[in-house]
Design a binder for these strands. Structure first.
Lengths: 226, 226
DNA sequence: CGTGAGGTTGATCGCTTTCAACGGAGGTGG
DNA sequence: CCACCTCCGTTGAAAGCGATCAACCTCACG
C-alpha cells in the first residue's frame, strides 16, 4: 500500500483524484479477474494504482461494447447509480485503491474543495465519453484506430520529435469492442497504418508511432489518404 | 422568469439541478439560434427552462455528431474545460437559465450538499454518455432508432398501457446525427417500425408508440425480427 | 400558386462484417 | 526436448448493412 498522508491530492487535468487514507484499503487483481459485475451494488469508487482495467457492457447475444480502459491514476466508478451498470475486469495484474462511496460523501461535506475537484474529475469523464461518442458515431475504421492510438500514446508515453513507443496492454478484441469494430477490421487497419509508415509493430503488443503528425491528422479526420 | 426562492432544489434522479436566484438571469433563444460555439470561453452552465437544445460536434469536412438533446430540466455545460468543446443550438424557441461557473463554485464552497448534488447530476450525464456509446458502437440501425424513441418517450411523455404520444422536436437529420446514421436510414427504419405496427406517425413530427414492449425489446437488442 | 425545406422511397455502391484458413507464441505433458 | 494444443493475430473471399445518389412527395409559407 502506498505511504500517504491524510491530506488528499488531486490532479484534475488528467482526470484523477488521489486520496491518501490507509483505512480505505487496496486490492490486488489477477489478469482477467473481475473487479465488479453489472448489477452489483455500488459500494466503492476505485482508483487504479497499477495495471489496466477495462469496463464494458455485454449484451444478451454476446455483443460487447468497451466503455473505457483505466490506467494508473484513473478513477473508475462514475456514472453508476446504486448498482453498477457495467462489468469491469483487470486486463493484467492490477492494484486498485478502494474508496467507499459513503466515505466520499462524508469527505465532500467536510471539505467543500474536494467536491469541486471531484466535479472536475467527473467533468473529465464526461468529456472522455463525449469524445468516444463522436468517434463511434462518425469516424471511419482507420480514423477510429488512429484516434485510439493517439489517445493511448498521450496517456502512457512521452512523445519525442514525432515518434513514441507505446505498450498495447489489451488484445485486438478489446480494441475492436472499444472502437465498435471487429478484430479483423482492427487488424487490417493496423496493417494499413504500418504500410503507410505511420506506425510500426515490433511485437503485436508493442506499438511504435513513427509519424505522430500524420496519425493525429487521421485521428482528427483531416486526412483522406489511403 | 420563474419565481423562485433563494434556496436551491435538486432532482438528482432525472439529472437536473434547479437553482433559484434571480441574479443569474435567463435567456431566450429563437429557433436555430446558437447558445454557444465550440471554442467560446465556458462562462456558464445552462439549465433548460423551455424548448429543446441540441449539442453537437462538427468536423471540418461537414460530418456532425449530436452529443445530446437537452429538454426542460436538463443541465448543459458538463464536460467542457475552459472552452466549450462543442456547439449548442436551440431546436425551437427556448428559454435557459444561465448560471455563471464562478457562482457554482462559490455555492459549492458555501454549501457542501450542493456539491454532492452536482456530482450526482454529473454522474447522470456520464451514464447518459455511456449509454450513447453502447448504442453507437454496437446497435443496428433499427435498434438505435428504437432506443432513441424509448428514451424520448420516457423523458417527455407518460406511458399508458403500452402506448404513448411523443412529440419529435428535432428533424430526421438531427436524429440521424445523434444515432450515427443518415436521414435516409432513419426514415427507412421509421417506416419499418410503422409497418411492424410498433409505432405510428400521424405527422412526421408526432410519434405514437403502439407497442412499447416490442419497442423496448428492440431497444434492448432482444428481438431480431424484421 | 410558386417555392423551398424536410421527408420518403428506390437503385446502386462500398466499407465493414462474416466466414474461413493459416501462422506464430506460449504452455503443458509425454 | 519436442509434440501438441489453444489463444491470438493476420489475411483472403464473399456477403450484407448502411451510405450514397437520385427522384419524388408533402407541407408550410410567401
Amino acid at each position: 500500500m502506498h505511504i500517504s498522508s491524510a491530506v488528499s491530492e488531486t490532479k484534475v487535468n488528467t482526470g484523477w483524484v488521489s486520496m491518501g487514507a490507509t483505512e480505505w484499503g487496496d486490492r490486488s487483481l489477477q489478469a482477467h479477474e473481475p473487479l465488479f459485475h453489472e448489477g452489483d451494488e455500488t459500494s466503492h469508487f476505485f482508483e487504479v494504482l497499477e495495471g489496466v482495467l477495462c469496463a464494458y457492457k455485454i449484451f444478451a447475444d454476446g455483443r460487447r461494447q468497451v466503455i473505457s480502459f483505466a490506467f494508473p491514476g484513473d478513477l473508475v466508478g462514475f456514472g453508476h447509480g446504486s448498482a453498477y451498470r457495467f462489468d469491469c475486469d483487470a486486463l493484467s495484474r492490477a492494484r486498485v485503491r478502494c474508496v467507499p462511496k459513503s466515505s466520499i460523501l462524508r469527505a465532500i461535506k467536510e471539505r467543500p474543495d474536494l467536491g469541486e475537484r471531484l466535479l472536475d474529475a467527473a467533468a473529465g469523464e464526461v468529456a472522455h465519453m463525449q469524445e468516444l461518442s463522436v468517434l463511434l458515431g462518425r469516424k471511419s475504421a482507420i480514423e477510429k484506430l488512429a484516434s485510439f492510438l493517439v489517445s493511448l500514446s498521450e496517456r502512457t508515453s512521452p512523445e519525442s520529435d514525432g515518434s513514441a513507443q507505446v505498450a498495447l496492454p489489451m488484445t485486438r478484441a478489446d480494441m475492436a469492442d472499444f472502437l465498435g469494430l471487429t478484430v479483423e477490421t482492427v487488424s487490417r487497419n493496423m496493417t494499413k497504418l504500418r504500410v503507410m509508415k505511420i506506425i510500426d509493430l515490433p511485437h503485436s503488443a508493442t506499438l511504435e508511432v513513427r509519424d505522430m503528425a500524420r496519425l493525429r491528422a487521421l485521428a482528427d479526420c483531416e486526412d483522406n489518404l489511403y
